[in-house]
Amino acid sequence: MMRHSVRENCVRLRRSCLRFPERLRLRRRQTRMRYLILLLALFATTARAGDAKPFNPSDYPPGVQTALRYANEECESQDGGPVTFATDTVRKVDLTGDGRDDYIVDFRDTKCGERESTYCGTGGCVMNILVTLPDGSVRPVFDGYVHGYKIMAPPTKRGAARTIRFDLHGSYCGGFGAQACFKQKAITATPFAFKQP
């Protein structure tokens, strides 16, 4: 073990004390940079949210507009106020594998006046799937209540239909409402429905 003189120890102590403010300045600079990056990300997110286009049913083909009219008719039948669609009420995705956009209309976040549950119940929320045919027209293939859905990963075979996993009311699996019930269906131009056993 080496022993240092008092003078050497004082010099070492002074040097380490001089290094401490440098480290502190470096940390402050790094913290400021993090705050600046966070602030820029926040501004970018706010700008994108401000640029979000309001939902407009006329942006979609007539078949999809017909499905959306259901919301207005249902709200009027319940003496509700104006219908407010969520920005993601209609989702465009190629489900049939033919390269054309198909449509999922999900009324989960649609409001009838102040009511939020007009389109949902114990069986889930109203959902429609519409596929685009070769002539450009849109055909409804599913209209029912679902608790949720997940579009499965695209198939490896080019041009194959996508599969959707539906989260349904337990009665569709022979149980009751709270029980988990999942069914999968490959989406084609053929209409389908889920039946209770």
Rank of each mutant, 00 (worst) to 15 (best):
R32H: 05
L68I: 09
R34L: 13
C10Q: 11
Q30H: 09
L68R: 08
L24A: 14
D59K: 13
R23A: 11
G50M: 15
L26D: 07
S16R: 13
A49Y: 07
Y35D: 04
E22S: 06
R48H: 03
C17Y: 05
V64A: 01
T31M: 04
R23H: 10
R14P: 00
A67H: 02
T31D: 06
R34G: 01
A52R: 11
P21R: 05
Y60I: 03
T66Y: 03
R12E: 04
P54M: 03
R32K: 06
A49S: 12
L13N: 04
A49K: 10
R32G: 00
R15N: 14
R34E: 08
Q65T: 02
V11E: 14
P61V: 01
Q65H: 05
R69P: 00
A52I: 06
G50H: 14
L18E: 13
A52L: 13
R15A: 11
E22H: 06
T46W: 07
G63S: 08
R14F: 12
L39K: 03
R27L: 13
C10R: 12
L18C: 08
C17Q: 10
L38F: 13
E22L: 15
D51I: 05
F20D: 06
R14E: 08
L42A: 14
V64D: 00
R14M: 12
T45R: 09
K53Q: 13
A44P: 00
T46F: 06
S16E: 11
V64T: 02
G50Y: 14
P61M: 00
